[in-house]
């Protein structure tokens, strides 16, 4: 653990030297990969420890119980927001949650981390929005998915003017989903660090005033990961909820969905 912290600081100081005077500069490529590796190490370690406690009766190991709690939470998110057919999105949501939440924790403890870097967050947002598009195409067909962009069916005269506008607005909103998801995460995590640094100056170098923000930053870690997954689920539900009503896909879900 000591080694980890030391090397992290080494990496971070290298970062600072590299970045130079430019303030708004993220990690280097190797630095980001290092922090992603730390995050994945934590995630895989946790999962590997939790996996040893798996059985079909009762999970006695605390980490396994924690993982089960996480599973129940994500399942609730899926079923409540997307509907009964939302169970198949659990792996994606679970992966996203683990990556983002652990990244937040790494950023919180090591003072630099993957989610404090906009490039990582944009990657997460691209994954989320891309997955939503993929699932939309799989649920409605490629044409159905794009006709979904074009808004409601209108008379020809109106459709000529309004449908392209709606189409363009929808495309812009899909793009803005990326921007909003990534900027929100980046702003909250990175902004938290900035706030700590700024408030530490208040203590005159003697009292680390900003470090007392730790609890609220911990809360931010949880809430931001939650909001990311929540919005992802909402986007998924928006794209896939026509699946059960309008389009005749048969009941390949195996059960009837309640009314939306």
């Amino acid at each position: 653990m000591e080694f980890l912290v030391n090397s992290t600081w080494l990496m971070a100081s290298e970062e600072v030297a590299e970045a130079g005077a430019e303030a708004a500069h993220g990690l280097s490529f190797a630095g980001l990969m290092f922090y992603i590796a730390v995050t994945l190490l934590v995630v895989v370690g946790f999962l590997a420890v939790a996996k040893t406690g798996l059985n079909t009766r009762f999970f006695k190991k605390p980490t396994t119980q924690l993982l089960e709690q996480l599973y129940v939470f994500i399942e609730g998110l899926c079923v409540n927001i997307i509907g009964p057919h939302g169970r198949k999105y659990i792996p994606m949501l679970l992966t996203l949650w683990l990556m983002i939440f652990t990244g937040n924790l790494v950023a919180l403890i090591l003072h630099a981390g993957p989610t404090a870097d906009l490039s990582f967050n944009l990657a997460m947002a691209l994954i989320a929005v891309g997955y939503v598009q993929y699932e939309g195409m799989r649920a409605n067909g490629v044409l159905g998915h794009f006709s979904h962009f074009a808004g409601p069916r209108l008379p020809i005269a109106m459709a000529l003017i309004i449908t392209p506008m709606i189409f363009i607005i929808e495309i812009i909103s899909e793009t803005m989903k990326n921007v909003s998801l990534s900027l929100r995460l980046y702003g909250n995590i990175h902004g938290g660090h900035e706030a700590v640094v700024a408030m530490n100056k208040l203590g005159g170098g003697w009292v680390p005033v900003g470090d007392f923000l730790f609890p609220i930053k911990l809360l931010t870690c949880v809430v931001q990961a939650l909001i990311f997954c929540l919005l992802f689920a909402v986007y998924l539900s928006l794209v896939t909820h026509h699946h059960d009503e309008g389009h005749d896909h048969g009941n390949d879900e195996g059960h009837a969905a309640p009314a939306h």
Binding site: I81, L183, R184, G187, G191, V223, L226, I227, L231
Partner: peptide
């Protein structure tokens, strides 16, 4: 349900400020 909706709304309002800042 209210918490979920509240969090989503909070996230959208917060985004406006973040966009302003960045």
């Amino acid at each position: 349900k209210l918490q979920t909706a509240m969090l989503i709304a909070l996230a959208f309002v917060e985004l406006v400020f973040l966009l302003t800042v960045f």
